[in-house]
Write a protein that binds this DNA or RNA. Structure first.
Length: 367
DNA sequence: TGAATTTGACCAAT
DNA sequence: ATTGGTCAAATTCA
């Protein structure tokens, strides 16, 4: 950190300062009368600030040479992030540095990737993860050690035609089978999207993403129980999960850090873009409901909440949102033209520069 | 009949 | 040796 460039240093200080201020604001909202949404937003913003700060540090690290950073992360990922809204759990693979474009299609660990996790609590009706606005093609399923349910591997349907490298993994929660953890990797580069129809197309069983085939369902549910590595708690529908118990992942990755895009190749050329985009998204969206964060920036989000809470966040959304809708809202990080919000935000974010002082007063809007 | 899914094998990482 | 991620042939679906 000794050679932080000035701009990064300034940004770092700003972020940490902002984190401090936000924490103070949060303290003022600890009284029970304060709406929980407000606290969630504050926590989300705090996390964004810290993550951004960490991202800067991490970037400096990557430029100046490897340094242990996991301790910092461990601190931030501690259970203190009981944060009702969303303990983030993004993972950025540091091995992207030694990528050559040729390796992109190879096996794990050789593909440049960032990942994110989105948790979707489906408490009603269907018991499967739902569409997130993109069409995915399942290419594998694997029993995962320590998990009751197999993990599904999906890649973008448009991979062959458009070379879209977005993938996702869907893992049903051990603790609560109604919860699916979706880990996305890679940003969609495809231009096609099913998003427009998704909101209206809520027919269960027609979901391309997770068709509810009896066969498949049975597979998911009949896997023998194994030891769980995580603990999930319910706070009135909000899912809070203790992170960081999977040490394997932490050892070679950078939890809590993310790039809002799929970095490929030339880091330096994109560094400005990284921070610009990250800054805009994290700050702007951090000011919004978690439900809004996902569609665009969502690559930097890991949140878990029950659909029953979405009405609190779904301003602008149909109150009668189906689970398809909810999933769409919550777990469509890679959307290009995704949910009504997501698509618009992408445009907005491309043209508007939100500074870090985006007012938290806007929270009232969602309260 | 083309597209999507399933599933065992393969490979890389640990 | 074990595990997670991917491939690809076989199978199923629409």
């Amino acid at each position: 950190m000794e050679k932080l460039m000035e701009s990064e240093q300034t940004t770092l200080i700003n972020e940490l300062t902002q984190g401090k201020e936000l924490t103070e604001q949060l303290r003022n909202h600890l009284n029970p009368s304060s709406p929980i949404e407000t606290r969630q937003f504050l926590i989300g913003k705090i996390l964004s600030s810290y993550e951004k700060a960490l991202s800067i540090l991490s970037w400096v690290d990557s430029v100046q040479g490897p340094k242990p950073t996991t301790n910092i992360i461990t601190t931030l990922e501690s259970p203190h992030s009981f944060a009702n809204s969303s303990p983030r759990s993004e993972v950025f693979d540091q091995d992207l540095k030694d990528q050559s474009p040729k390796d992109v299609l190879k096996k794990r660990k050789t593909q440049p990737r960032w990942s994110e996790q989105v948790r979707v609590c489906l408490g009603t009706g269907f018991d499967g993860p739902l569409d997130d606005g993109h069409s995915w093609r399942k290419y594998g399923q694997k029993d995962i050690l320590g998990a009751k349910f197999p993990r599904g591997y999906y890649r973008c349907t448009h991979r062959p035609s458009q070379g879209c490298l977005a993938t996702k993994q869907v893992q049903r929660s051990d603790e609560d089978p109604t919860i699916f953890e979706v880990t996305y990797r890679g940003r969609h580069t495809c231009t096609q999207s099913t998003s427009k129809s998704v909101i209206n197309d809520i027919r269960p069983g027609k979901n391309k993403d997770h068709p509810r085939k009896p066969q498949q369902q049975q597979q998911e549910q009949e896997v023998k129980p194994k030891l769980s590595k995580e603990a999930t708690f319910n706070f009135g529908g909000l899912q809070v999960k203790t992170e960081g118990l999977d040490t394997r992942e932490e050892e070679d990755t950078f939890p809590s850090f993310s790039f809002p895009y799929a970095p490929i190749g030339d880091e330096l050329d994109e560094e400005n873009n990284i921070f610009k985009e990250y800054s805009m998204e994290s700050n702007f969206l951090g000011s919004l409901s978690p439900a809004f964060v996902s569609p665009t920036a969502s690559e930097s989000n890991y949140f878990s909440m029950s659909p029953c809470h979405l009405n609190n966040f779904g301003a602008g959304q149909n109150v009668q949102a189906s689970e398809s809708d909810l999933t769409e809202i919550m777990s469509a990080p890679n959307s290009v033209t995704n949910s009504p919000i997501g698509g618009d935000f992408d445009i907005l974010l491309d043209n508007v520069n939100f500074d870090t002082s985006f007012s938290l007063d806007n929270l009232e809007f969602f309260g």
